[in-house]
Simulated scan of single mutants.
Amino acid sequence: MNGYHFSLIPSVCYLPLAGQVQLMTKPYIWQTRLLIDHFISLPIGAFISFPEIKIQSTLNGYTPSLSTQYLNLLAKLNIVGKTGNNTWVKKKQVSFHKRMEDGLEDDRRTLAQLKSLQRIKI
């Protein structure tokens, strides 16, 4: 993606979401694309808007909003803040790693955050 090796992609581009089961694209591809195209270049405090990811409906007609699910999880990780109904603001910068060791440390930190969210039933 944009010249970045997949091992240096930030951990928040590998987040598990319930609705992605319906999507045939690997999560790190569409999550990285959203961050590159609609997040990284914005300053902290800027409003965030992710386009909807096209996804097939389930057999019962449910069509999950992956962009909203992703933003909700980013909010729980304190990277964005929710300021209203589907209104989000950037709280922290996300950057690509320069070294694999930094990526591994980010993975450990993100995994610990996700585990702690699971204990409080995200």
Rank of each mutant, 00 (worst) to 15 (best):
S95Q: 14
E105A: 15
L117H: 11
L34R: 01
E101L: 13
P51T: 04
V94R: 08
K82S: 05
L104Y: 09
H38L: 01
K54V: 14
T63Y: 01
M100C: 12
Q118P: 00
T83I: 15
A18V: 03
K98I: 06
I120Q: 07
Y4Q: 08
F47R: 13
S95L: 15
L104K: 13
Q93F: 08
Q20E: 10
I55D: 01
L8N: 07
L8P: 05
T110Y: 03
L104R: 14
L73V: 06
M1D: 03
L66E: 01
I122T: 09
T58Q: 15
L111K: 09
A46I: 04
K121A: 14
Q31R: 04
S65D: 14
K82F: 00
I9S: 00
A112I: 13
I44M: 04
M1L: 12
L23Q: 08
N60L: 10
Q22E: 13
S57Q: 10
R119Q: 11
G61Y: 04
L73Y: 02
D107A: 12
R99N: 10
S49V: 09
R33C: 11
I53P: 00
W30N: 04
A112K: 15
V21I: 15
L77N: 07
Q20F: 05
Q113T: 13
N78K: 15
D102K: 10
N86D: 10
N78V: 14
A75H: 10
I120A: 05
S11W: 03
R33H: 13
P27D: 02
L66S: 01
G81T: 12
Y14C: 11
K26W: 00
T110C: 12
G103E: 00
F50S: 00
P16D: 12
A75M: 09
Y70V: 01
P27C: 02
H5P: 12
L117W: 07
S116K: 13
I40M: 13
K90C: 06
A112R: 14
L77G: 07
K54H: 10
M100D: 08
N86E: 08
S65C: 15
L8R: 08
L104V: 13
V89D: 01
I48C: 06
A46W: 05
A46Q: 11
G84R: 02
K121I: 15
R99D: 06
N72D: 10
L71F: 04
I48V: 14
S49M: 09
R109G: 03
H38Q: 05
A112E: 08
L23Y: 08
S49E: 00
F39Q: 00
L59R: 15
N60P: 00
G103V: 06
F47E: 00
F6V: 14
G3A: 05
H38G: 03
F96H: 05
H38C: 05
K76E: 14
L73E: 02
F96Q: 04
Q118H: 11
G61N: 04
L42M: 09
K82G: 03
T32L: 09
K115P: 01
M100K: 14
G84L: 04
T83Q: 07
